[in-house]
Amino acid sequence: MNQQAAMDLRQARRSLWRERLAEDWRVFRRNPLGRIGLTLLIMFGLMAVCSYIPPMINPMYNPMTGVDPHIMASTGPSARHWLGTDFMGRDIFAQLLAGARVAFMVGVSAAFMAVVLGTALGMTAGYMGGLTDTLLMRAADMIMVMPTLLVVLMLAALFGQLNIWTIVLMIALFRWPGVSRVVRAQTLSLKQRPFIDAARVAGASHPRIIFRHIMPNVLPLAFLYMTFRVTSAIVIEAALAFLGFGDPGTVSWGMMLQWVWKTGHMFQAMYWLLPPGLCISLITLSFYMLGRAMDEVLDPRLRDETSAG
């Protein structure tokens, strides 16, 4: 009997979370921005997953090393090469798919690192206050005013070609201060809320207050910032690659643009210039739209009054 009651309770607990997720999903789905963003992202995701297929069909579709033996210069779209080939006969479509994979990799991992770092430091600064707060926030200010692209460019010039993971790491290291500022502000305001006092009266320790009471209230915001950080990471990587400081071993969209430009095809081969350009714009746009829609899920004040019910 007691066993049965415990089972019921566990079930009730689970359905509580299911309900909450369902509710959030409903709000998200009502937002056209969110729908468009999500659709685009799923599309890019499919592209990234499919990037493994062309090289398997024929080695000449390998985005980096595969060269069509019959083609010596850039050609337009054809049945054999859906989007045409680049100056040395590599398939542009295959490169585009590979670029999607790199964009996700760079964007998500750099943003994730930046957000983890920013959240940890922001929560520490906000909760501890005093000297810790001052030191961390001044450091954040200093990093924040540094132009990321310029610094990374200088480092690239100093150390020669950069590995793609080095680039990811540097983007993360330069992009946490924004997150930490927001998280700190949120932590400061949460710290003053009566439910923190209530937790203290209940006997909660500092770690418990931080992880059980503050973090769950900060994490949604951090994830929201992650979507915006993805956007900026992708743009920075593309800019670096376009300027010739990317990882020469990876095919990213920025790299493709650099090849277009370097080989003098800028306005001669639209089939080559447009796809990566459009992809960069669309993927950043879709992450941004996703972020905006999530914003609405997280902040009920932004919800459309008429459809709230």
Binding site: R193, P194, F195, A198, V201, P216
Partner: peptide
């Protein structure tokens, strides 16, 4: 604190919304 507990003024603020 096992012996002394408190009920807060504002029932809208004294609960963690995520818990």
């Amino acid at each position: 604190r096992r012996q002394v507990q408190m009920v807060f003024q504002d029932p809208y603020q004294s609960f963690n919304p995520q818990v």
